[in-house]
Write a protein that binds this DNA or RNA. Sequence first.
RNA 1: GCGAAUGUGGCGGAACUGGUAGACGCACUGGAUUUAGGUUCCAGCGGCUCAGGCCGUGCGGGUUCGAGUCCCGCCGUUCGCACCA
Length: 880
Amino acid sequence: MDRYTPSLIEPKWQAYWAAHHTFKTPEDPALPKKYVLDMFPYPSGAGLHVGHPEGYTATDIYCRYLRAKGYAVLHPMGWDAFGLPAEQYAIQTGTHPAITTQKNIATFKRQIQALGLSYDWDREIDTTDPQYVKWTQWIFLQLFKRGLAYQTETPVNWCPALGTVLANEEVIDGKSERGNHPVVRLPLRQWMLRITAYADRLLDDLGMVEWPDSTKTMQEEWIGRSEGAEVNFPLADGQGSLEIFTTRPDTLYGVTFMVIAPEHPAVATLTTPEQRAAVDAYVETARNRSDLDRKAAKEKTGVFTGGYAIHPLNGQRVPVWVADYVMMGYGTGAIMAVPAHDQRDFEFARKFGIPVIQVVSADGKLIEDDMTEAMVEQGVAVNSGPYDGLSTAEFKRKVTDDLEAKRQGKGRIEYRLRDWVFSRQRYWGEPFPIYFPVETSGDPRKGDAHTIRYDQPIPLDESELPLRLPDLKDFNPGEDPAGTLARAVDWRFFQKDGKWFARETNTMPQWAGSCWYYLRFMDPKNPAAAWSREAAQRWLPVDLYVGGAEHAVLHLLYARFWHKVLLDSGYVQVPEPFAKLVHQGMILGEVEYTAFRVNGAWVPKEQVVAHPEGGYRHKVSGEEAVPERISEEATEKKGPHIVLKAEPSITVEARAFKMSKSRGNVINPDEVIREHGADALRLYEMFLGPLEATKPWSTTGIQGVSRFLERCWNLGQKPVSAAAPNDELLRLLHKTIRKVGEDIEALRLNTAISAMMILLNELAKADPLPRQGVETLVRLLHPFAPHLAEELWEGLGHAPSLQAVAWPAFDPALCVDAQVVVAVQVGGKMRGTIQLAPGATQDEAVAQARTLDSVQRHLEGKTLRKVIWVQDKLLNLIAG
RNA sequence: GCGAAUGUGGCGGAACUGGUAGACGCACUGGAUUUAGGUUCCAGCGGCUCAGGCCGUGCGGGUUCGAGUCCCGCCGUUCGCACCA
């Protein structure tokens, strides 16, 4: 008997599928469609990670299943190939990023193909391909023409180490998300995309998609809509007014001071000569404070400007302070401070001795003298003149109307969401299809004096797309914040009709390519349009989108934004791009065992506590505890603990960590395939647990599924009988068909596999082995372990490919057992089981249950008071 | 601090609308076949036990004939957000 040898059968079937275009997207418009998409990878130099195949295998199983169910399936793959690593490599080595990128793509493609994934490779996309860049630029022009792309001189997050500006969301705790470099604020000319214009729709339309609640919540919070009012406080000196935003206009009578951000333009006009020096010093300090410092500060700081505003309702003079707890970037950069009902204002007022006036009360009583913190709950208005007695909600409504009538304010909706900083000062990105007039009397390429009129951007004509990157030798961003491309003077400056013009030297961020790749996949080779109207009508929306939760906000929000712009322009017809979204969980490294030593002697892990500043401490002595990695062989289980074999009183910690190069726990898919085969890798990753869960890799665990595949193989080598399966096996076949199908549709792939394992265990016992049984197993196995399934199918005398064979059907009548096992309880406690025909009556069940010894024992001397009967499941006898 | 997710054997995990907790697999133990095994097959495998049972799904309460599942209050872990007015 031949042995199961994945290294022989896997390449064979991969070659077969490629030669026969097995996974080519069907053109037939009569077939029902499904568009199943994986988040395409950035082809890094490190190659594929075991995390990648997890989501890819899940969608592959789903697609193979859908094809067998008769769907036309669009399942493409491509490369998100612009990005910093290739450029940084280029800076170090001088290798052009395009070369590195192509090399990495080749590696990724080889690795992905070795997994036997059923992509339609005719639709492969590379975001750096000029034919793709052309349409990315074209979409930018649509945004520009609709007034959604604009330039602004704005303080941006400049990262000197990366030589680039980062979006707010790419900065975490004052450091760059990529590389963890310090970030400073620097005013720079930037392209912005007006995503805030779509804030409401991006928020509301979340109701239309089937996404994880956690992701929807994160997007909602990111957009951060809050309803309130804008109120004008006239300045006491009669010069204009101060506009504030508040979500609590009902607390207007509690205003005892106002605060403006240090960057607020009114700082200059409000500050009195006496206060000037103090204010200037404060503003200067605040400006130099990084976001990190501002955040870390526990104490509120601020300075009185000396200026006053007039309260719009009671006409009182309100002092205006400047403090950095108010941000210029949110609302109007100025607030009315209500210390009684806002914790931040409360802290500030207490520190600077400003009065606190309570204007909301839970029960009508005043507690302001005893306040230790702000009362932020809603309630009933007090101390509020004509509004006394109103509920918070009524007050808000009424006072907003009143202010509007007096032209002193109006209802306003504010968003946390900011416009999107869309330019980068880098080389390896899409150039903007924009140029500017140049005022010069010489030749700007030669360094002659010139002025670029950035205020007069001109869109490139569509016929001139794509605008390609210039070929450079030195990719360093250099000191010029205008970007790497500023040095490519021959590319940058050009003459038209005798006049000089300058191209935009910024490039687009990596998001640009990934914002619309799902659209290009529908019609990837179209030379005349980004995609055709017919393709959009045929394929949108994406029915299932699978990718990491790390993209929960940014990529998914940006893509939705572009999609809605394209909807408004008439290029797509559905409001949301991704109907259903699933995040695959992370695969952690193998479990590691750690024991701790204090002064050289082992201590149990319970005595060790993590120190807030890193490292570990001994709980008892307070001395440093030194962690030491222990091999699995040196440990054993003892009751509920894992202990050192050599010293069983010492408990050890067992934990899995994120895979990382530095930790040395990275599993390479190539090696797993070499040792166990692609089918085993696929199956193992699916069997590990629920798709969405974070789960640790286990090298011994993969042997379990390897063994399962071998046993499937061995079954396929046995002679089969044409005889029908016996009744019990037949029922199991039908139940398994139903279970596997339902589980695939719900992406519960782990339980689908265990159902197939159960079926295999039964088939292995069957003698003779019915052909129908083996064939059913092979057909069910096909989406999961396609190479083995194809091989076995061929061995059973069928012509390939199994993908063309319809998914097996089940008979619901055969999905129930001939006899059901019913649980018998006495007083709610399990006392045994009885076998009954499905549909048996309660009386039959009670009669049979009474014959059980354990039931008789517990009913002895008692009378039966009540019977709980759950049809075909459970009988509970209550006695007393 | 706020928000979300999550907690079940030694391990990964099962358990449909409240109804036999631990499916399936790993590891482990015993046995059979084998020259050999990182092979195959069979059996066992939550804890305690006076062998009848008792206890057991992070902890403490509650609802119910019956709770992993529902309710209330805690604790741990993970992930977001973090002076958003």
